[in-house]
Amino acid sequence: MKEEKKGIVLGVFAYVLWGIIPLYWKLLGEVQSLSILFYRIVWSFVFMLLYIICIKKWRAFCQKVKSLFSSPKTLGFIVLAAIFISINWFTFIYSVGHGHVTAASLGYYMNPLVNVLLGTVFLKEKLGRIGTVACCCAAVGVLMLVLLSGEVPIASLVMAISFSLYGFVKKQLVVSSYTSLTIETLIMLPVALLYFVFFSPQPFMGYTTNLNLLLMGAGIVTAIPLMLFAEAAKRISYILLGFIQYVNPTMMLLFAIFLFHEPYTLGQFFAFSFIWLGIVLFTYGTIQSHRKEKQFLSQGEK
């Protein structure tokens, strides 16, 4: 029970940090979204290297890198993971920077349901009746948003799909959270360096002192929530983690409405209501399945 409570605290802390990240990106309004992405990659890599050295895991990390890069299949999965998380980061930064925090929150509300879709199609996992209804409700909500705005919520879909694909690819890899993040940023590092040398509108770290410090801090605000999340996942059930997960998009939606004063109509509220209903049904179905599985296992032990 003590470990579970610790896991809950770590999980909530991770998702609260992810929830307030839009505030951080808003402080970097003078910097282009693509530049923020590549600064995030560079400083995340630097921060993770320092972290690995501080916890005295450098030798183990080098051995893991050597073993991963010796397998073409594994290397392919890592490259895909790096690409998907970079797409997710850029879309999120761009959405926040251009006043579309509501779209960002929608993307992360949709993420668990996209996970279900991927599991059903590619992993041949069975989707129960409640899960099917949940996905239909979410689809109705997205369709309503399309009809209300007159356009497909591309940014939301890209965020949901890219993060789901990132998680899907990561399932094929057995590595620690800090090793994974370090290698992913290492893979994207040459692209970032090429950008700063040939395409960046400003020299590397050529902004004011305050902006430079914030850009360096991007590595910290990226790495810490990921590591907290990984530790939480070791201590609490997937179901409980699923409940906590909705702290993130809920905070973003509240910021969008009350702090950034983004347009939020009654029609949007009804559309989001279908998505929330889908989430409630999906969570309920997951809990029921978990209870049945526990009952089956306890009967088997008897």
Rank of each mutant, 00 (worst) to 15 (best):
S35T: 11
P190V: 05
V280C: 09
S177Y: 13
N111S: 11
W58E: 12
I36S: 01
A233V: 15
F84G: 01
G19Y: 07
V280S: 00
Q268R: 11
I130R: 03
G128R: 07
L186H: 05
P190A: 07
L259T: 07
I78W: 08
Q295E: 15
A223E: 08
L173Q: 04
N210P: 00
Q295F: 09
S156M: 11
F84E: 00
L127W: 06
L145Q: 08
L37H: 04
I87L: 05
V96S: 06
V221T: 13
V42T: 10
W89F: 04
A223T: 15
V121K: 10
A14R: 11
N88P: 07
W58V: 13
L266R: 02
M227N: 09
E301H: 15
G29M: 01
P112E: 14
P112T: 08
V158Y: 00
L123P: 06
T179W: 05
F258R: 08
F274P: 03
S44W: 03
R59Q: 15
Q172K: 14
Y264G: 00
L27I: 07
G206D: 14
F243Q: 10
F92V: 02
F204C: 04
E301Q: 15
G119A: 10
G267N: 08
Y178N: 10
V140Q: 04
A81N: 11
Y15M: 15
L215R: 05
S273D: 05
I220D: 03
S177D: 14
Y166D: 10
L281W: 03
I239E: 09
Y39T: 12
T208L: 09
P22H: 00
T286E: 13
T250E: 08
M48G: 10
R40V: 15
L228H: 02
Q202M: 09
S67G: 01
L297A: 14
R291A: 14
F198P: 01
G97W: 05
K294C: 11
Y284R: 01
K170R: 07
L189R: 00
A138H: 10
M188D: 06
Y15I: 12
V175S: 08
A82P: 00
K124Q: 12
L148A: 09
L34P: 00
I36Y: 00
P249A: 06
S67P: 00
G29H: 01
N111F: 07
S298M: 14
I83R: 03
Y246G: 10
A230L: 06
W25G: 02
A104E: 11
I41H: 02
V65F: 04
F260E: 05
P72F: 03
V140T: 13
L27D: 05
V169M: 01
M251Y: 02
T179M: 08
M159E: 10
I224V: 14
F61I: 04
F204S: 02
L34I: 11
T120F: 15
L17Q: 07
L211P: 07
F122G: 12
F204H: 01
K57T: 12
L241T: 11
G167K: 03
Y94V: 02
M251I: 14
V31N: 03
P22S: 00
M144Y: 11
N210I: 08
L117T: 15
S105F: 05
S162T: 03
T283Y: 04
W25R: 04
F229R: 12
L106M: 12
H290N: 13
Q245P: 02
E30Y: 02
S149Y: 13
P22F: 00
